[in-house]
Amino acid sequence: MQTSTFIDQPIKKAESRAKYYFRKFFQRKTAVIAAVIILIFLFFAIFGPQIAPFDPSLPDYDNLYGAPDAVHWFGTDEFGRDVLSRLLVGTRNSLGVSLASVLIGAAIGTFLGVLAGYYGGIIDSIVMRGSDILFAMPDILLAIAIVAIIGPGIINVVIAVAVFTIPSFARIMRSATLSVKSSLYVEAARSIGCKNSRILWVHIFPSTVQSMIVNFTMRIGTAILAAASLSFLGYGAKVDEPDWGAMLSSGRNYLDIAPHLVYFPGLLIFIAVLAFNLLGDGLRDTLDPKLK
């Protein structure tokens, strides 16, 4: 059982394991930097309104589309509002929506996927046909449909993005479970008479964690972009509150005359997604039991 993971170890041992993982994680400098960047974003998300140099919603009709200068470092937008302040304050909305929706989607999707993969049969059919139906609709359209039915608003956008996150987790976790299911240690566990639920959550689930982490980090990026696409199509969380996706989408109309309106929110989205991906890679390498 050497290749199983830390979750099924006694608590005392887990502490030392945690230390080991920390040490291992800190060896990966890119992941650490990514983590630091994410921490900075989290800091913005919490203290954004306090550190913003200007009121993010204060218009200045005499300074529309202002290019970056000493006063407005990132320029001003179509209402003369300070772009830097809006980006800082908007961090909360942007990260909040994507994190919340991926968490919800991942939890449901993973649960369903592992169940389907392990038990097969009727459960598998129901889960997989269900996700087939969800999956058969183009993501964005599904999100639009959900927002159209339940109405606009930040919680509804979270639900919409979460719903189309579910099938991807379900499918990937199912296939991961399938490939683990036929592996030696699971067969061994089964042969010594372990209960299904124990095999499922103690032996199979932990070894699918790495697949989940890779998918999870990627889905956060996807979720940020999905929220931006929803804004692009006019179904964003809130137009009057600062939000990276909304800023990028409205900025596209001014690409020629005020590229900074597209450039800065785009870059921030880019860095955020990059950071999550690098962190995910770092975690994967750290947690991957086979590479110890």
Binding site: G221, L225, S229, F232, L248, R252, V262, G266, I269, N277
Partner: peptide, 8 residues
């Protein structure tokens, strides 16, 4: 590739 919004 995955970080860049396609429409942008």
């Amino acid at each position: 590739g995955i970080s860049i919004p396609g429409f942008w």
